[in-house]
Write a protein that binds this DNA or RNA. Structure first.
Lengths: 137, 137
DNA sequence: CCATAACTCTATAGTCACTATAGATATAGA
DNA sequence: TCTATATCTATAGTGACTATAGAGTTATGG
């Protein structure tokens, strides 16, 4: 049996975050000692690992809840799980594209400014005047 | 003079968001009609445009507050403004790199799953077992 | 057996940048 | 003057935590 601090150390998820996951219904409610402290067995550790991994990949709590629910029914079709992953992949790709446009714009703004004072600063002028931008964002 | 709805339409910033910016000290407090409604002149419109543009580029409220403060002193050196933009550029680039790693991992997870049921679903197995991953995230 | 240190408990509030809602008031046009 | 639309304030909610206070529990060393 592990204390909450132990599974925190092993998974890298902070203690209050584990309690938060329990409250949100991601982690099953842990057994308790007579004094009321949480004790986890192997299963709890695995479950938290699953959640951590999914969070690291950027999946929302909501999506993870769905995946956990699916995982509890091993014989149902997995289209739904595939769909969740695929949809998330699309949103990650969109986000990358958007950030690349911002990167280009920021670089242009940053490197063009050779002025010494705020009055002529290209960074500030560019922010004030959208027409100085090269693409949409 | 523009109503709050008008500058909202012209800039694409929602009405409650404009009031929020005023509360946060980004927008100067607007003049009021005898009945207490906000009225903006050209300056307010420009200021909101500046904020919108900076937000679209992903700058934080805090960073924008700094830039506005700088903008009010046109003869001070603009190193600080350049630094804010450059630092943000670095953080955007880091974020892009991180998302690219996630994208690769998600794609691998998504495309490998040919199973029909949750029991064998690669998406779910990969989430449960970090050792199936190819790189760190 | 007891003191103590380290850990854990709950409940609540704060973070960021909004967004939504309720209920009241103001304004513009017919 | 009526009415539709817009606006006002104040408050609460969003997501995914993080921080804090104050109390209680557990493990260890003497």
């Amino acid at each position: 049996m592990y204390t909450i601090g132990e599974i925190s150390r092993r998974t890298g998820v902070k203690v209050p975050t584990i309690r938060y996951y329990e409250q949100m219904g991601l982690m099953a409610a842990a057994e308790r000692t007579p004094g009321g402290q949480r004790r986890y067995c192997r299963e709890g550790l695995d479950q938290l690992g699953f959640i951590k991994h999914a969070r690291d990949l950027g999946l929302s709590i909501e999506a993870i809840r769905d995946l956990i629910r699916l995982n509890a029914h091993p014989d149902t079709p997995c289209d739904e799980a595939d769909r969740i992953a695929a949809e998330h992949l699309v949103s990650v790709r969109n986000r990358i594209e958007q950030l690349k446009r911002l990167e280009a714009e920021l670089q242009r703004i940053s490197t063009q400014c050779k002025a010494g004072t705020v009055k002529d600063c290209y960074v500030i002028r560019a922010l004030a005047d959208h027409s100085l931008c090269e693409n949409e964002h």
